[in-house]
Design a protein around this nucleic acid. Structure first.
Length: 260
DNA sequence: TATAATGTTAGACT
DNA sequence: AAGTCTAACATTAT
């Protein structure tokens, strides 16, 4: 479910809510997640985002790494305990409230690791999108540009919704082989990736189906979507009909008239 | 009943 | 060897 803007939203809210707080207990309701006895009693330091992942650093040098995958959600409750929502997979209790993982499809993962830096992707779309270097280095790659944007080892944090939106704003056909992009097109991609993602962070994410932030609130970026989920509707830029195709197994929305 | 859903990756294929 | 593609994971909603 969550891509970079949604995970960034959660991390910012987590910083407010759990930084410096002591974990009273971590109750695992889906044993697929694993066992985490050692975290009780630990203080949580400032949470941060790694791509689409969330890291909760602990005082003992370890870190809880959470990835929400497709349908994972985090919810903070600071009032008196209520019955857990459907599909609750863990409950992390603090003196001041509790952090709940909700995940219908059970793809989310949690692990306890050393709090060491993780391998960085080649491109961080918010801070480092070296257009010229990419243009020079992807020669020989016939991979569709959309698949390249979704490859987390290459570009960190972009998922299906924002890949569609970024390619539309850059006027690039998702099927274009990566090797065929011009330098000007890489520059447009870099610019539009940053524009779209920063705006979406500002909007606290995209609530097209069930995305909610840490406090249960919807995001607002769904009001700015140009192509995602808009098959058959007119392209806001050229009035052509938005098409939905399948690319790399994922639903892909684009405007064949103005994305070349 | 069949399909699709905001993600990732192991294994197959080229 | 390296790049690319597909199926699988598990569940709900349309």
């Amino acid at each position: 479910m969550p891509e970079l803007p949604e995970v960034e939203t959660l991390c910012r809210q987590l910083q407010e809510v759990v930084s410096g707080k002591i974990i009273f207990s971590l109750r695992i309701l889906d044993n697929k997640l694993g066992e985490f006895q050692q975290v009780a009693g630990q203080t949580v330091n400032a949470p941060y985002r790694n791509g689409k992942g969330i890291t909760l650093p602990l005082d003992n040098g370890k870190a809880l790494r959470l990835h929400l995958r497709m349908t994972g959600r985090l919810l903070w409750q600071d009032d008196r305990p209520t019955p857990e929502p459907a599909h609750t997979r863990f409950v992390m209790t603090f003196k001041q409230g509790r952090l709940i993982l909700i995940d219908p499809r059970r793809f989310a993962t949690l692990s306890l690791t050393d709090n060491t830096p993780l391998p960085q992707a080649f491109v961080d779309p918010l801070t480092q999108f070296p257009a010229r270097l990419l243009w020079e280095s992807v020669q020989g790659r016939g991979l569709p540009i959309k698949s390249f944007l979704l490859d987390q080892r290459a570009v960190s944090g972009i998922g299906n919704i924002y890949a569609c939106e970024i390619l539309h704003r850059a006027s690039i056909d998702p099927w274009r082989p990566t090797r065929d992009l011009s330098l000007a097109e890489w520059k447009r991609l870099a610019k539009m990736a940053k524009t779209v993602l920063l705006k979406a962070i500002d909007c606290r994410g995209t609530s097209v189906s069930d995305w909610r932030d840490l406090l249960g609130q919807q995001g607002e970026y769904q009001h700015f979507l140009q192509v995602y989920g808009r098959a058959g509707k007119p392209c806001p830029r050229c009035s052509g009909a938005v098409k939905r195709v399948k690319l790399g197994g994922r639903g892909t929305f684009f405007c064949p008239d103005c994305q070349r």
